[in-house]
């Protein structure tokens, strides 16, 4: 298999250390799954934990860099927010918007009962 050089591009070498140290526990994986609204079976959970563990060990290499005085980049586009007049340009199209609804009734999205 070809890949960038380990010494210079430092892409692979953390792979070996990935197994050495646990970056994320099963309990944390379950907590994140709840935050992300994703259901996992118990067999899937361990595999997922191992995958996330490997990725988190890999991204740990960022800590080799001193970024104390570095400002974060949040956007790479041109500075400034363009302004425009707040005018309605689209027509009401409830039927078109509801056409893709998994469940609808009388012009509304239908969901399971929320309030008893």
């Amino acid at each position: 298999m070809y890949g960038p050089d380990m010494e210079r591009a430092e892409c692979y070498h953390l792979r070996a250390t990935a197994m050495a140290q646990t970056k994320i526990t099963l309990e944390q994986v379950r907590h994140v799954a709840r935050l992300a609204r994703l259901e996992w079976s118990s067999e899937q959970e361990e595999r997922l934990r191992a995958d996330m563990d490997e990725m988190l060990a890999y991204v740990d290499k960022l800590n080799e860099l001193d970024t104390k005085d570095v400002a974060p980049t949040t956007q790479v586009g041109e500075a400034g927010m363009p302004m425009r007049d707040d005018e309605v340009t689209n027509r009401a199209a409830a039927d078109a918007m509801l056409a893709n609804a998994p469940s609808r009734e009388r012009g509304y999205f239908k969901v399971p009962k929320i309030i008893e």
Binding site: L62, L65, T67, V70, A71, P72, T73, T74
Partner: peptide, 8 residues
Amino acid sequence: KAQKVRTL
């Protein structure tokens, strides 16, 4: 941290 490295 990743956003800072992005700056670098």
